[in-house]
Computed example of a mutant assay.
Amino acid sequence: MTPIEFRQQFISNALANPGIEQIPELKEQLSKFVQFDRETLVVRGIDQSAADFLAEGGLPQDAAPYLNFNAYSEQELKDLYDLYEMPKEIFPIGANGSGDPLGIEISSQAIVFLNHDANMQRVFINSSIQQFAQSLLCYQQLLKQGQGHELLERLQSIDPVATKAGSMWHAEARSNPYRV
Protein backbone atom coordinates (compact mmCIF):
# COMPACT_ATOMS: atom_id res chain seq x y z
CA MET A 1 0.00 0.00 0.00
CA THR A 2 1.37 3.38 -0.95
CA PRO A 3 1.34 6.29 1.50
CA ILE A 4 -1.31 8.07 -0.57
CA GLU A 5 -3.49 4.93 -0.70
CA PHE A 6 -3.24 4.65 3.09
CA ARG A 7 -4.27 8.26 3.55
CA GLN A 8 -7.19 8.00 1.12
CA GLN A 9 -8.46 4.74 2.63
CA PHE A 10 -8.15 6.00 6.21
CA ILE A 11 -10.07 9.20 5.44
CA SER A 12 -12.67 7.33 3.40
CA ASN A 13 -13.29 4.92 6.29
CA ALA A 14 -13.47 7.76 8.82
CA LEU A 15 -15.98 9.71 6.75
CA ALA A 16 -18.16 6.70 5.94
CA ASN A 17 -20.22 7.07 9.13
CA PRO A 18 -23.79 8.28 8.57
CA GLY A 19 -24.37 11.91 9.43
CA ILE A 20 -20.75 13.06 9.17
CA GLU A 21 -21.51 15.03 6.01
CA GLN A 22 -23.83 17.27 8.05
CA ILE A 23 -21.10 18.21 10.55
CA PRO A 24 -18.41 20.07 8.57
CA GLU A 25 -16.15 20.59 11.62
CA LEU A 26 -16.10 16.87 12.38
CA LYS A 27 -15.53 16.00 8.73
CA GLU A 28 -12.57 18.40 8.65
CA GLN A 29 -11.13 17.01 11.92
CA LEU A 30 -11.39 13.39 10.72
CA SER A 31 -9.63 14.31 7.46
CA LYS A 32 -6.57 15.96 9.04
CA PHE A 33 -3.25 14.27 8.37
CA VAL A 34 0.19 15.15 9.67
CA GLN A 35 2.99 15.06 7.13
CA PHE A 36 6.58 14.90 8.27
CA ASP A 37 9.67 16.55 6.87
CA ARG A 38 11.65 13.92 4.95
CA GLU A 39 15.03 15.56 5.57
CA THR A 40 14.45 15.81 9.34
CA LEU A 41 13.51 12.13 9.46
CA VAL A 42 16.54 10.95 7.46
CA VAL A 43 18.98 13.14 9.41
CA ARG A 44 17.60 11.67 12.65
CA GLY A 45 18.16 8.07 11.48
CA ILE A 46 14.81 7.06 10.00
CA ASP A 47 15.28 4.81 6.96
CA GLN A 48 14.37 6.13 3.51
CA SER A 49 11.21 4.04 3.00
CA ALA A 50 9.74 5.13 6.36
CA ALA A 51 10.74 8.75 5.71
CA ASP A 52 9.11 8.61 2.28
CA PHE A 53 5.93 7.13 3.76
CA LEU A 54 5.66 9.78 6.45
CA ALA A 55 6.53 12.66 4.11
CA GLU A 56 4.26 11.61 1.23
CA GLY A 57 1.18 10.33 3.04
CA GLY A 58 1.71 11.08 6.69
CA LEU A 59 -0.38 9.85 9.59
CA PRO A 60 -3.84 10.89 10.73
CA GLN A 61 -3.81 13.64 13.32
CA ASP A 62 -5.91 11.35 15.52
CA ALA A 63 -6.55 7.60 15.25
CA ALA A 64 -7.98 4.79 17.31
CA PRO A 65 -6.91 3.56 19.78
CA TYR A 66 -6.46 7.03 21.30
CA LEU A 67 -3.37 7.96 19.32
CA ASN A 68 -2.37 11.37 18.05
CA PHE A 69 0.45 12.32 15.75
CA ASN A 70 2.62 15.40 15.44
CA ALA A 71 5.47 16.50 13.19
CA TYR A 72 7.46 18.24 15.91
CA SER A 73 9.50 21.35 15.18
CA GLU A 74 13.22 21.33 15.91
CA GLN A 75 12.58 23.21 19.17
CA GLU A 76 9.87 20.76 20.19
CA LEU A 77 12.22 17.85 19.45
CA LYS A 78 14.95 19.49 21.55
CA ASP A 79 12.47 19.97 24.41
CA LEU A 80 11.28 16.36 24.20
CA TYR A 81 14.84 15.05 24.31
CA ASP A 82 16.15 17.48 26.94
CA LEU A 83 13.30 18.44 29.23
CA TYR A 84 11.30 15.23 29.10
CA GLU A 85 14.32 12.93 28.95
CA MET A 86 13.14 11.24 25.79
CA PRO A 87 15.77 8.69 24.76
CA LYS A 88 17.69 9.77 21.66
CA GLU A 89 17.21 6.31 20.12
CA ILE A 90 13.50 7.10 19.69
CA PHE A 91 12.29 9.63 17.11
CA PRO A 92 8.96 10.99 18.42
CA ILE A 93 5.93 11.03 16.11
CA GLY A 94 3.11 11.50 18.62
CA ALA A 95 1.57 10.15 21.81
CA ASN A 96 -1.08 7.79 23.06
CA GLY A 97 -4.11 8.74 25.13
CA SER A 98 -2.15 8.39 28.37
CA GLY A 99 0.44 10.91 27.20
CA ASP A 100 3.09 8.28 26.54
CA PRO A 101 5.45 9.34 23.75
CA LEU A 102 5.13 7.31 20.56
CA GLY A 103 8.01 7.05 18.14
CA ILE A 104 10.25 5.19 15.77
CA GLU A 105 13.09 3.25 17.35
CA ILE A 106 16.16 4.20 15.31
CA SER A 107 18.00 0.86 15.60
CA SER A 108 15.11 -1.34 14.49
CA GLN A 109 12.76 1.16 12.77
CA ALA A 110 9.98 -0.35 14.94
CA ILE A 111 7.10 1.75 16.19
CA VAL A 112 7.04 1.86 20.00
CA PHE A 113 5.72 3.90 22.87
CA LEU A 114 7.42 4.69 26.15
CA ASN A 115 5.25 3.98 29.17
CA HIS A 116 5.79 6.96 31.48
CA ASP A 117 4.09 5.09 34.36
CA ALA A 118 6.74 2.36 34.13
CA ASN A 119 9.94 4.45 33.97
CA MET A 120 9.69 4.94 30.20
CA GLN A 121 9.60 1.20 29.51
CA ARG A 122 9.56 0.49 25.78
CA VAL A 123 6.31 -1.07 24.52
CA PHE A 124 6.36 -2.58 21.03
CA ILE A 125 3.62 -1.58 18.58
CA ASN A 126 4.69 -2.60 15.04
CA SER A 127 7.81 -3.65 13.16
CA SER A 128 7.68 -0.78 10.64
CA ILE A 129 5.74 2.36 9.80
CA GLN A 130 4.08 0.58 6.87
CA GLN A 131 2.85 -2.24 9.12
CA PHE A 132 1.72 0.34 11.65
CA ALA A 133 -0.37 2.12 8.99
CA GLN A 134 -1.92 -1.19 7.93
CA SER A 135 -2.67 -2.01 11.57
CA LEU A 136 -4.37 1.37 12.08
CA LEU A 137 -6.58 0.70 9.06
CA CYS A 138 -7.36 -2.80 10.24
CA TYR A 139 -8.33 -1.58 13.70
CA GLN A 140 -10.43 1.23 12.27
CA GLN A 141 -12.35 -1.23 10.08
CA LEU A 142 -12.85 -3.81 12.85
CA LEU A 143 -14.22 -1.21 15.26
CA LYS A 144 -16.61 0.10 12.61
CA GLN A 145 -17.85 -3.45 12.01
CA GLY A 146 -18.07 -4.21 15.74
CA GLN A 147 -15.53 -7.01 15.34
CA GLY A 148 -12.74 -5.84 17.63
CA HIS A 149 -12.47 -9.38 18.95
CA GLU A 150 -10.82 -10.35 15.65
CA LEU A 151 -7.95 -7.87 16.06
CA LEU A 152 -5.10 -10.26 16.88
CA GLU A 153 -6.18 -12.74 14.23
CA ARG A 154 -6.24 -10.05 11.55
CA LEU A 155 -3.00 -8.43 12.68
CA GLN A 156 -1.24 -11.80 12.50
CA SER A 157 -1.11 -11.46 8.70
CA ILE A 158 0.14 -7.85 8.88
CA ASP A 159 2.79 -8.10 11.61
CA PRO A 160 2.94 -11.31 13.69
CA VAL A 161 5.28 -9.74 16.26
CA ALA A 162 2.64 -7.08 17.01
CA THR A 163 0.26 -9.73 18.34
CA LYS A 164 2.57 -11.06 21.05
CA ALA A 165 1.90 -10.56 24.75
CA GLY A 166 3.37 -7.27 25.95
CA SER A 167 2.73 -5.41 22.69
CA MET A 168 0.31 -2.49 22.44
CA TRP A 169 -1.99 -4.34 20.05
CA HIS A 170 -2.13 -7.39 22.33
CA ALA A 171 -3.09 -5.19 25.28
CA GLU A 172 -5.66 -3.35 23.15
CA ALA A 173 -7.25 -6.62 22.02
CA ARG A 174 -7.50 -7.80 25.63
CA SER A 175 -9.12 -4.54 26.77
CA ASN A 176 -11.34 -3.93 23.73
CA PRO A 177 -15.04 -3.81 24.66
CA TYR A 178 -15.94 -5.70 21.46
CA ARG A 179 -13.84 -8.76 22.25
CA VAL A 180 -15.47 -12.09 22.97
Results as ranks from 00 to 15, higher is better:
residue 107 S to F: 04
residue 94 G to E: 09
residue 31 S to Y: 01
residue 33 F to T: 08
residue 175 S to H: 11
residue 22 Q to P: 00
residue 180 V to I: 08
residue 180 V to G: 13
residue 22 Q to S: 14
residue 137 L to F: 08
residue 9 Q to H: 12
residue 55 A to F: 01
residue 95 A to E: 13
residue 57 G to L: 02
residue 47 D to S: 06
residue 73 S to G: 10
residue 5 E to G: 02
residue 13 N to M: 09
residue 91 F to C: 05
residue 23 I to E: 09
residue 63 A to P: 13
residue 150 E to Y: 13
residue 68 N to F: 09
residue 33 F to Y: 06
residue 68 N to K: 09
residue 90 I to D: 05
residue 69 F to V: 03
residue 159 D to H: 07
residue 160 P to Y: 05
residue 83 L to G: 12
residue 66 Y to W: 03
residue 171 A to W: 09
residue 81 Y to S: 06
residue 175 S to A: 15
residue 152 L to D: 09
residue 98 S to Q: 08
residue 24 P to R: 04
residue 145 Q to S: 11
residue 86 M to F: 11
residue 114 L to Q: 05
residue 132 F to R: 13
residue 71 A to R: 08
residue 180 V to F: 10
residue 12 S to M: 03
residue 61 Q to G: 10
residue 174 R to G: 03
residue 155 L to D: 11
residue 112 V to H: 05
residue 38 R to L: 08
residue 107 S to D: 15
residue 145 Q to I: 03
residue 153 E to C: 06
residue 71 A to S: 15
residue 140 Q to L: 10
residue 3 P to D: 08
residue 71 A to T: 04
residue 118 A to S: 06
residue 46 I to A: 10
residue 130 Q to V: 05
residue 6 F to H: 15
residue 58 G to N: 05
residue 38 R to Y: 12
residue 144 K to L: 09
residue 25 E to V: 04
residue 35 Q to I: 10
residue 180 V to E: 13
residue 103 G to S: 02
residue 46 I to H: 03
residue 68 N to Y: 09
residue 132 F to H: 12
residue 127 S to W: 08
residue 138 C to G: 09
residue 30 L to G: 00
residue 126 N to D: 11
residue 52 D to Y: 01
residue 164 K to P: 00
residue 76 E to Q: 15
residue 11 I to A: 03
residue 57 G to Y: 00
residue 29 Q to P: 00
residue 28 E to A: 13
residue 13 N to Y: 08
residue 130 Q to F: 01
residue 77 L to Y: 01
residue 36 F to C: 10
residue 178 Y to Q: 15
residue 101 P to L: 00
residue 19 G to E: 06
residue 25 E to I: 02
residue 86 M to Q: 14
residue 22 Q to M: 07
residue 26 L to I: 10
residue 153 E to H: 13
residue 79 D to A: 10
residue 169 W to P: 14
residue 170 H to K: 07
residue 105 E to F: 01
residue 72 Y to W: 11
residue 164 K to H: 10
residue 149 H to S: 15
residue 157 S to P: 02
residue 20 I to Y: 05
residue 12 S to G: 10
residue 61 Q to M: 09
residue 4 I to Q: 15
residue 156 Q to T: 14
residue 173 A to V: 12
residue 125 I to R: 02
residue 59 L to Y: 03
residue 21 E to C: 00
residue 119 N to F: 05
residue 173 A to E: 11
residue 19 G to N: 04
residue 82 D to V: 10
residue 8 Q to R: 14
residue 76 E to G: 11
residue 108 S to T: 15
residue 28 E to S: 11
residue 40 T to M: 07
residue 102 L to P: 06
residue 128 S to Y: 05
residue 2 T to F: 07
residue 66 Y to N: 14
residue 2 T to R: 07
residue 51 A to M: 04
